Computed example of a mutant assay.
Amino acid sequence: MAYEPPTHTVERSMRATLGVKVVAGIDEVGRGAWAGPVTVCAAVTGLRRAPEGLTDSKLLTVKRRTALAGLLADWVTDHALGHASSEEIDELGMTAALRLAATRALDGLAVRPDAIILDGKHNYLGDAWQVRTVIKGDQSCVPVAAASVLAKVFRDARMAELAPDHIPFGFAENAGYPSPVHRAALEEWGPTRHHRVSWAFMDGLPRWRHLKKVRVLDELDKADGVEQLDLGF
Rank of each mutant, 00 (worst) to 15 (best):
V76G: 05
V40H: 00
W129A: 08
G204S: 13
L81C: 08
A50F: 06
L106W: 02
A102L: 06
V23G: 08
E227R: 13
R209Y: 02
E173S: 12
V226C: 11
L231D: 12
A102N: 06
D114P: 11
A110W: 05
E52Y: 11
P5D: 11
A16L: 09
L92I: 03
D218S: 09
M94R: 03
I116C: 09
L220R: 15
E88I: 10
T95K: 10
P37L: 00
W34C: 06
A42G: 01
H182M: 10
V76N: 00
G225M: 02
V111A: 09
A172L: 10
V131G: 11
P51T: 04
G204T: 12
K58V: 10
A35N: 03
V153I: 02
L18I: 06
D165P: 01
E11K: 07
K63I: 13
Y124I: 05
V144W: 01
E28D: 07
T45L: 08
I135W: 03
P168N: 03
I167E: 15
D107R: 14
A151V: 04
V23K: 10
P6H: 00
L118H: 00
A67V: 02
P164S: 08
G93W: 02
E219W: 06
R65S: 09
V142K: 07
P191D: 02
L68I: 02
T17I: 10
T133P: 08
A160M: 08
R132P: 00
H195P: 09
E4P: 13
D78E: 06
V131C: 06
N123T: 10
W189S: 14
W199M: 12
A115M: 00
R65P: 07
W129M: 08
A73Q: 13
A42L: 05
K58M: 08
W34E: 10
Q130A: 15
H195N: 01
G32H: 02
E173D: 14
R31E: 01
I89F: 02
A43S: 08
A42D: 05
G32W: 01
H8G: 06
E28C: 00
L220Y: 11
H8M: 01
P178E: 03
I26W: 01
R196I: 04
E173V: 14
A69S: 12
V214F: 07
R215E: 11
K152L: 06
R15E: 12
T7F: 00
L125K: 03
A223F: 12
L217Y: 09
D74H: 13
A151H: 07
K58T: 08
M202N: 02
M159S: 00
T39V: 15
L72K: 03
P113Y: 01
G53H: 05
E88P: 13
